[in-house]
């Protein structure tokens, strides 16, 4: 029973963590992409379609990543090259993604999908409780953990990560130092898109292996909130994603037990919990100040 609950928590948390990590990198470079929900749903539908066509879920995963990245490229072109407003463009990207994915996925509604199968890691998978939870998981779960560690290392240990943080803090000074602001931001935006696409693929290939219109169900927005809640730090994104996942699964079980709390209230609980934690975290002004990308959402036009 416990193992089953914990497994569902992990499955619920993984797409949030991946999408939030991608957005974290984008925002660290100073770009605010509110289109996570749209990129995620595009990833979900394209991953599902590619899996149905080829019969191989791994090709579906790759297709989902590519779809998210390609969709984010549209955002990058509009906001970085044409210097459109990032907030408005991001919202438009979400609306476009929801509509377009419904169109693409129309013929797939109701079709049974192919689930991405777990990969068992020899020996480790036999550890009681931990084994099945952590070492008998699908590829996307392993990727999510690798991304947390990799992005943490990239941001705080590598020189390229340093340059990216510098751009997010003060793009004018970074430009003056000879760092290519626009190119770095394009890469960061596309990385964010690829992650959102991967998170979408997890939804339609692992979480519920089928295509349902609007199946991202606001997870893109939760991912956006998680980035802020985590003060733009990857390890906190992991913690936050699992907190949100745990509360949402917990309230489902609480509803099943039929405790005397209205179900509407319980459904709202994960969001309320996230907001409360957000407020507590942002209380530490210094951490927030050090980690908030100061040029977030500001357009950059290099001087000539």
């Amino acid at each position: 029973m416990l193992e089953a609950i914990l497994l569902t928590v992990i499955t619920a948390a993984t797409p949030l963590v991946i999408a939030a990590l991608g957005e974290l990198v984008t925002e660290r470079s100073g770009v605010l992409n509110l289109g996570v929900e749209g990129m995620m749903i595009m990833g979900a539908v394209v991953a599902f379609a590619a899996t149905q066509i080829t019969g191989t879920p791994y090709i579906g995963v790759l297709a989902g990543i590519a779809a998210g990245a390609a969709f984010s490229l549209l955002f990058g072109f509009l906001t970085l090259t044409l210097v459109a407003n990032q907030v408005a463009t991001g919202l438009a990207l979400t609306i476009l993604g929801l509509g377009l994915s419904g169109q693409i996925g129309e013929s797939y509604v109701g079709q049974p999908g192919i689930k991405l199968q777990p990969i068992e890691i020899p020996l480790l998978a036999d550890i009681p409780l931990l084994g099945p939870l952590l070492f008998r998981q699908d590829l996307i779960f392993y990727l999510s953990i690798a991304l947390v560690i990799g992005i943490h290392w990239f941001l705080f240990r590598s020189r390229t990560g340093l340059k990216m943080r510098a751009i997010g803090d003060n793009h004018a000074s970074a430009h003056a130092l000879g760092i290519n602001v626009i190119r770095t931001r394009y890469l960061a935006v596309m990385f964010g898109g690829a992650c959102a696409g991967l998170a979408g693929a997890q939804l339609s290939l692992v979480y519920t292996p089928q295509w349902v219109e609007n199946m991202a169900a606001g997870r893109g927005w939760i991912a956006l909130a998680l980035v802020v809640f985590a003060s733009w730090r990857p390890l906190r994104v992991l913690a936050g994603g699992y907190l949100f996942g745990a509360v949402s699964i917990g309230q489902l079980h609480a509803q099943a037990f039929g405790i005397g709390i209205p179900s509407q209230f319980l459904s709202a609980l994960p969001y309320a919990a996230t907001i409360v934690v957000l407020i507590i975290i942002s209380h530490n002004r210094r951490t927030t100040m050090i980690n908030t990308p100061a040029s977030l959402g500001k357009p950059f036009v290099p001087e000539r």
């Binding site: 510098a166 050090i290 990308p293």
Partner: peptide, 22 residues
């Protein structure tokens, strides 16, 4: 023209030759 969110070492590193490690 410093980056407020970065450390002293990181600020200095940004203006130097990339061949030096942090």
């Amino acid at each position: 023209s410093l980056f407020e969110a970065l450390t002293v070492g990181e600020n200095i590193a940004l203006s130097l030759d990339p061949k030096f490690s942090l």
